[in-house]
Design a protein around this nucleic acid. Structure first.
Length: 431
DNA sequence: TCTGGGGTCCTAGGACCC
DNA sequence: TCTGGGGTCCTAGGACCC
């Protein structure tokens, strides 16, 4: 007998992913509470069940839990992202053998889309259990699997499987008795729903929407008015109406960030230059990796905002590049030039970073028609020409931009997609 | 000095996710 | 002394156009 399902999403998610990866390679860790610390050992980014049990919270600064670490013999490890990436790939490879329609949502979780008949399984639970065993055999990672008709519900099912031992890591909301579903949803906090974070759950609670069942039963229309379209979709999804599709192919990034806190505070421009050079290299590698070029770049520098006793300074500088590029030398040059504009002596800098923006596919660059100073008399003529061209070839074919404070205009023409022009901005005066 | 309506583009900020 | 590093989407509002 084979099971027929209309439209089912599964969410497979590794438990305490980073901590579990470490444990696979050092099984002795099983006996101890384990936490994995962020880059520079700043704060906790993963913890195993034992560490959760002794009260260590996600994202907590390492220095705040020193006592807990000592008291409970917690093993604190520096993160090893290369290892986690490798384990992630193996995990996803196993999942891919169950359906071609898989969306790798993050390093430790994937959505699977199951449509029509799903092979030799008698139930989704049976399938989930098989997947779990299979992943364990090939990677050693413990996982949980949730099934339901929408992505939001599958997420919730996974959450239920994780929190309730009696499910043994697999929760199928599709075949669950509706009365039981209602009972469980009534006990789950509204903030357990995917997309409902702290602020929104506070707001919902003030409206007496406290648990998942409350949210599920609230009116999508009135919720939309107060909270917008995103939460409206969440409610639809909670009621089994699928609004979010699987995206099998990861779309190229729309922005690429590379930034880091310094282990030790730095104050000289030279040190900031060194860090930014490194970040530009990292970010532009990613950029070339997805075959994109960037049209704009931002750099930022900041002092330690946690130190209220020290003078604070934050500034960033946006540069719209004259030509879109992914060339590391060009980008480095621009970054260092921009740094000169915002760097101030006499501050203890804690963090810096680079953001590549306005990303587009390589080979779809734009062509500048001219880049010159225009008089006020030219302007109406230009506008006329602009309208004529756009009227004939379609809106957005040609755009006009100007830079502030100067009579300098640039017209940009692009073959395929609309774009905007380059613009050089003066940053506000520094206090 | 006060005055309109509709549309687009762009930015900043706020919320969320892992 | 020591507090992560990535990302996404939506919305409101301003500038500017006709």
């Amino acid at each position: 007998m084979s099971l027929h399902v209309q439209k089912v999403f599964a969410l497979a998610d590794a438990n305490s992913f980073y901590a579990s990866c470490e444990t696979v390679f050092n099984p002795k860790l099983t006996k101890f509470p384990v936490v994995v610390l962020s880059n520079g050992d700043g704060c906790v980014v993963a913890r195993n069940q034992k560490a959760k049990d002794v009260g260590i919270k996600m994202g907590e600064p390492a220095f705040l839990i020193k006592d807990l670490i000592k008291k409970h013999k917690v093993v604190a490890l520096s993160s090893n992202y290369a290892l986690y990436a490798d384990m992630s790939n193996r995990f996803m490879a196993v999942l891919s053998s169950y359906t071609p329609q898989i969306e790798v949502y993050s390093v430790d979780e994937s959505f699977l889309y199951l449509n029509g008949h799903i092979g030799e399984w008698n139930s989704l639970s049976e399938m989930g259990t098989t997947v779990k065993k299979h992943v364990d055999m090939w990677t050693g990672l413990p996982i949980c699997v949730g099934f339901s008709q929408t992505k939001t519900l599958a997420k919730l099912a996974n959450h239920i499987a994780k929190k309730n031992a009696q499910f043994k890591g697999v929760c199928d909301l599709v075949s669950m008795d509706p009365i039981q579903v209602k009972e469980i949803f009534g006990k789950l906090d509204v903030s357990d729903v995917w997309g409902i974070g702290r602020k929104l759950s506070d707001h919902l609670r003030s409206m007496n929407i406290n648990n998942v069942q409350d949210l599920k039963q609230s009116s999508p229309k009135s919720i939309r008015q107060k909270f917008g379209v995103v939460m409206e979709r969440t409610i639809e999804e909670l009621n089994g109406v699928s609004c979010l599709e699987i995206s099998e192919i990861a779309p190229p990034r729309k922005q690429i960030i590379s930034s880091k806190s310094f282990g030790q505070k730095v104050s000289t421009r030279f040190e900031l230059e060194q860090s930014l050079t490194e970040y530009v290299t990292t970010a532009s590698e990613k950029l070339r990796g997805q075959k994109s070029v960037c049209g704009a770049m931002q750099i930022f520098i900041m002092t330690d905002k946690h130190r209220e006793d020290e003078p604070q300074y934050y500034n960033h500088f946006n540069v719209n590049l004259p030509e879109p590029t992914n060339d590391v030398r060009t980008l480095t040059k621009v970054a260092l030039w921009a740094l000169k504009r915002i760097y101030l002596e006499g501050y203890q800098y804690k963090k810096s970073g680079v953001v590549l923006m306005d990303l587009r596919e390589e080979g779809k660059e734009q062509f500048s028609l001219f880049d010159t100073k225009l008089t006020d008399e030219d302007s109406p003529k230009i506008m006329q020409a602009l309208d004529a061209i756009n009227g004939r070839f379609g809106r957005g074919t040609l755009k006009l931009g100007s830079s502030m404070g100067e009579n300098r205009y640039k017209m940009v023409f692009q073959k395929k997609t609309p774009c905007y022009t380059t613009e050089w901005l003066e940053i506000p005066a520094i206090k």
